[in-house]
Amino acid sequence: MNKYGKITIDGLVTNNAAFKLVLGTCSALAMSATAIKGFGMGISVTVVLLLSNVLISLLRKVIPSTVRIPAFIVIIATFVTLLRMFLYKFIPDLYDSMGVFLSLIVVNCLILGRAEAFASKQPVLDSALDGLASGLGFTAALGIMGIIRELLGAGSFFGIKLWDFQIAFFSSSAGAFFVYGICIALFVFITDKVEKTFRKKKAQLLRVSHDEPLPEPETAEANNDNLKEAE
């Protein structure tokens, strides 16, 4: 896997902002009541993250490291202000439904986190890709939560009514915490399983490629057991 592939996979899955790193929780919880809100918030964050990553990466040799955090915050706040003006003019529905959380993109830990950990050290193209991948990972997480909560809480899918059955719990704030918690648990469970099978396959490949087979983990454990019994 080359460098760009790794950055993409990291941002989308292995370091998924919402489910793995648990960053930007406030907006993830508040804006996942419906699928449209979730995707709207996710894409807004992605746009700000992409633009701020590019600009910070371009300025990384200009900004002195002692005042880098205030400088990053000003850059992010500027892009959020621009985004707010854009949405106010062109997508007023989304602007209204996002309310105070649109301004709060400024204090979304994900954006400042990527600026500090990645964009302030890496070249422009890498930073842009990292911003895009992390943002889309966040969008996917919010979208999934939005779809689940809308389907169960309102019985609709992207605003289209599917059935009359609805559980008010899922559209309330309690449902947001519940769905988020369960989603994180499932994500951890699935990634653990995938990682385990991946590691097993890799070990098998290694064994095939070597003339001498590597010691089986089972036998090693059995040896340990024997030792324990001997003790």
Binding site: S172, S173, A174, A176, F177, G181, I182, I184, A185, V188
Partner: peptide
């Protein structure tokens, strides 16, 4: 607590029940 529920997930679910009380 089940391994995958440790940490954030169990805290979130707890918060969910508290949110229900505040509802």
């Amino acid at each position: 607590v089940a391994k995958c529920m440790k940490g954030f997930p169990i805290t979130m679910v707890t918060a969910s029940f508290m949110a229900m009380a505040f509802y």
